[in-house]
Nucleic acid binder design. Sequence first.
DNA 1: TAGTCCCGCCACTTA
DNA 2: TAAGTGGCGGGACTA
Length: 869
Amino acid sequence: MSGTALESQNLSQKSHSKDDSFVAPLVPVKTPKKVFGTCAVSVEKQLTMGPLTTPKKGREVGSVDPWTPTSNLKMLISAASPDIRNREKELCMDNDGRDGLDSIQDTENGEESEKMISRKEKSLGLLCHKFLARYPDYPNPTLNNDICLDDVATELVERRRIYDIMNVLESLHMVSRSAKNRYTWHGRSKLAQTLAILKQVGEEHRYGQQMQQIRQRLLDREFDFDGEEKENEEVVELESGEQGQKELFFVELPGVEFKASVNSRKDKSLRVMSQKFVMLFLVSNPRVVSLDVAAKILIGEDQGADQDKNKFKKVRRLYDIANVLRSLKLIEKVHVTEERGRKPAFEWVGLEEFPQVKLEKSTSECPPKKKSVLQSRATVDNCAKNLFSTPGAKRSFTRHPSLIKLAKSIQEDRRKINSAPSSPMKDSSNTDFPNKMAQLAAICKIKLDQESAQPAGSIAYIPAQCSPLIPVLLPQQRGNGSYAVYLHPSSLRPNPLAKPQPTSLAVRSMTFEDKTGQSPTGQSVAKSQPVSKATDDSPLKLKRLRSDSAAESSPSKAKRTDPDTSPKLCEILQARLKARRGNQLSSRPSPRALHLDPEFVNTPGGAVANQTLEQSLETFLDKEEKMVNSDSEAGLTPVRAIPITPGHLHTETLVPAGYLIPISQQSLISYKETQGSGGESNKASTPTYSIYQTPTASRPAPALEITPTSLRRHRPAAAAADSPCIAQQAHHLHSPSPAILNFTLQNLGLISGSSPGNAFAAPQTPERANTLPSPLPGPLALQQRGMVFIKPISPVPVQQSVSAQPLALISVQQPLMTTPKGTGLPQHSFFHTPVPLSPLATVVTTSGHQGTKTVYIPQRKLDVTTEDS
DNA sequence: TAGTCCCGCCACTTA
DNA sequence: TAAGTGGCGGGACTA
């Protein structure tokens, strides 16, 4: 330890004005060594100010500190870069005009302004600036790059903050700890490499997917007007299966390894969080990460009810990290604007291109068994070193055990949800509904394979990063065609590694609207909204359903209670349809949950249901039009479902909210070939899943879509790349009987359009969707993508051909839908409930030709604005 | 009021 | 055992 005298002085300088009052008196008592330690300060403080309370700013008076704010500032500026100097000048403009000797008096006079200035001066970001100004970006290897914390502390004053800075810098390998009080400066020489690795690690851990899911959930919550459900729904969704147990340790680089002996607490450090924070940016596209999303991923949501509390507490660390990263000019603060206001976020402005790094799966991760909180340091070190020690060989990273807790927490939450008496999942069966859906899908797939030799590869999987939807091919009852249903991955368990997703995200219900207002609950249409919302897993949902006095009339209920009630259900549907006819156009649907429980499958009533449905429904076309219009006005992007094949069933279709059913190009082609439906499709060997193209995507608005639903808006083409994943999903599909499928499809809103070759005209306006089957409409977002979109809405009177036509349902991100301001009806979460607002499921047709299709995905636009702006 | 983040207590680690 | 670290959260400050 050196420079004790100077350090003592610095202690007194520690802070200007306010802090002086309590710091200065301590000077005489302090020992030089302790000067920089907070322990000493705390002791002194307790003597002078009382225990453990944050000193009231500006309350103290009579600073005896000989070091004035000005003198201190000058010293700092001298070490700072020009821009920092300028910044400080701005911040301290008032101070600059003063002479240090007058500081005391000035402090009193300008206490208010100084308070503000002082706070800014002491911000972690500025301190970091100052620190960085001391060293070159790229250190000269021939020079001594040692950093003595004492020296730094002397200059920057806030020693405790220096640790924060060093931790973040260390996470980026800009410095490495060499010994106690000693660091080695690396500058940005290793930054690119570090970022490259972090990016890979982030991808490996599917942070992008997690973000997507969390965003989705956050949106869901936004539309959740029932606070009672919130906490119950909050479940951290980490990767499934194996991934769920992956925990990150600090990612090290060759030559920058931690000295385990120096700091054993490194695995619980700000460093790890910092790295993960950076990872989020690197795997995010657009590279904007909102604080709340980052907090959920990085901090996790420990223990249910306390999650929010914890988040708010720990989010401070994110601010700390962010401030340093900002100083490094790696991120910038921005705001994302959502319906409920602006949210703080950060945008990556650092490097975009990174060097290639190889991370071999086999070596990139520590064996699962190592994932113990008590994991020995040696194990971790070995893991890390093995991964990095050989430059040319396998590099990898280690995982932080702290995340294990998070994973456990998640599992617990899931367990709670699944076991909850009111849990929908439990309600329907012991198994997850998603599983049932998966089975259904699988069965369908098998059927499809048998009947049409449809290659499984035709089913594309859309990575969660793009969308949490997983397409499932379902065979038509006639076996003439196929359609795909996009389900949230969570509902399918696409692969063995996948863990069940939180039920809240699972697509597990269909809704039937109750326009008559005769909903079991007897709620008005508007009031029924909450009920529809309840279609998600929240316990509340069932609670409400159960409380329905008229439960008997509830399709969903009927179905649940009796698997064999499908026919009844059909009747009910018919009755409702009729009732609707009598309703005013303005009446909004009151969605009721109709679960596609497994019971459905194998239910003999399926065929009957189909017939029944056929009889019902002509249309609400006019009504639909109006509703659609209102939706459009509300900012909703219309989604159209287009019958891929001709046919005509006159059935009222109830469209599950938020489903888009894309059909692979291949499928379409096959179908067309067999049907001879003229159109020549792009054989697109390329997958046709740019479902994420939406009308909004074409908006010139540079604003970033940060919602979970921001499905590759910026990179439509990228969707194709995802197809391989989709193929994988195909292997996990199951299939129900045709009758059931038919019924299911109908309920899904897959009512085929009418005549062959007549796809629903998918004009930009949904209103025409059902009425005017026309060859490919124009909107184009997803043209040439064999897919169909069904607007998440309630019942859709779609004409269905007897011979079912293949339809594609694409799940729509409901949350994105703008709240129907005009109606005052709340929109519900995407996966939770059907969208009551839009009465019609619009279909994007595959064009009879080229197989072009237009997809409209309702999305909410988020404006990202930089803080500066 | 929500968002920020300064401040420093105090537990833990290291020498 | 003193000194070094850094997790953590109260509460001040800002917008």
